[in-house]
């Protein structure tokens, strides 16, 4: 187990270093001028000297290799630089935005996991009936649905027509930051989280269904059926544990799609999270922030995959045995 962890960490370290080099190289070749993006519409009023002063302030006048070494050595010490659009340290911006996104992501993640598992289990038990077909149709359709479009439909139906939920933002508009209550935040969270949950169901549900179908075709289930077990009892005794591990694993391994969905959902609902910061950084050429987000999201995905691997090994006795043998 320890050897396995070390191997994983070592591999991730090489990947992370490569990612830093690669993404730095990529952004330094962008034709978008960070100084122009920084100054914005006042570009015509900025003299050449002022331009150079700005370039020197941000260290943009040095060759890329030197800039990379400077950035890289600061990164190793935990300093990711200063965001150009927020004028604050990147680590602070990411930390704050990440907490907001984390609330959204964890809600969507939990909800989609549970709902997906239940749906998949029902469909698997009722294989080839109309329930199963309906579930499959629903999941395949969801897999083809653009996240942002579903978010827009949610806004139209629940925020504009029914007026149950706010149209967007993370907190009520026109209220002082100290007066925002937890209930307010949750209230603004429901619609984006619901959007992500509805879409996130497909993957887990289809996977759970397939596993359950495989298990129900096995000899020990045939024997159990012959003994007279059926319905929920059969699922409880033979299905649940076999199906739960892959479902949990796949849910942890889906962090990458979760982040992708969050970026889109945050854009639709103007939710001030990490996804919105990513888009802002891309549109307004905030290099330090963009690089910081790329690295942090890779870290997040890696942790998800690692947890999936560990759970798989810890919970499933068969894999542990196979390793020692």
């Amino acid at each position: 187990m320890i050897a396995f962890l070390c191997k994983k960490l070592l591999r991730f370290a090489t990947l992370l270093i490569a990612l830093c080099v690669l993404s730095f190289w990529l952004v330094s070749y962008s034709p978008l001028d960070p100084i122009q993006a920084y100054v914005g519409a006042d570009m015509t009023r900025v003299s050449l000297e002022q331009r150079e002063a700005i370039a020197e302030y941000w260290g943009l006048n040095k060759p890329p290799v030197e800039r990379f070494l400077h950035w890289g050595s600061a990164l190793v010490q935990g300093d990711m630089g200063t965001s150009m659009i927020f004028r604050r340290p990147v680590a602070d911006v990411i930390g704050e935005r990440f907490m907001a996104s984390l609330a959204l992501m964890s809600m969507a993640w939990l909800f989609s996991g549970i709902l997906g598992f239940v749906l998949g289990a029902i469909a698997g038990m009722k294989q080839d009936t109309w329930v199963d077909r309906l579930m499959k149709w629903y999941c395949f359709t969801l897999a083809s649905t653009p996240t942002f479009w579903l978010g827009m439909l949610m806004v139209i139906v629940f925020a504009v027509w029914l007026g149950w939920f706010p149209v967007g933002l993370g907190v009520p508009a026109g209220v002082l930051a100290e007066q925002v209550t937890l209930a307010d935040r949750l209230y603004h969270l429901i619609l984006p989280a619901l959007t992500l949950s509805i879409l996130g169901v497909a993957n887990v549900a289809l996977h759970t269904r397939q596993k359950l179908v495989d298990i129900l075709a096995s000899d020990y289930v045939l024997f159990a059926r012959a003994r007279g077990e059926k319905g929920f009892l059969l699922f409880w005794r033979h299905g649940l544990r076999n199906v739960a591990i892959p479902a949990i694993t796949i849910q942890f391994a889906s962090f990458s799609e979760l982040i992708g969905g969050t970026v889109l959902a945050e854009q639709v609902f103007s939710y001030p999270g990490l996804g919105q910061a990513t888009v802002q950084a891309g549109l307004r050429s905030d290099l330090p922030l963009l690089l910081g987000i790329v690295i942090c999201s890779a870290l997040f995905v890696f942790i998800g995959n690692l947890v999936a691997d560990i759970i798989y090994r810890l919970v499933d006795p068969r894999i542990r045995k196979g390793e020692s043998a």
Binding site: Y29, V263, T278, V279, G282, S285, L290, V301
Partner: peptide, 24 residues
């Protein structure tokens, strides 16, 4: 290893990075 590198970054974030590099 290359596949791991690509799958390690969320698709959408990678897309934003690449399209930023090429100027959209």
């Amino acid at each position: 290893w290359l596949i791991d590198l690509l799958l390690g970054v969320p698709h959408l974030v990678a897309l934003i990075l690449i399209s930023f590099t090429l100027g959209g």
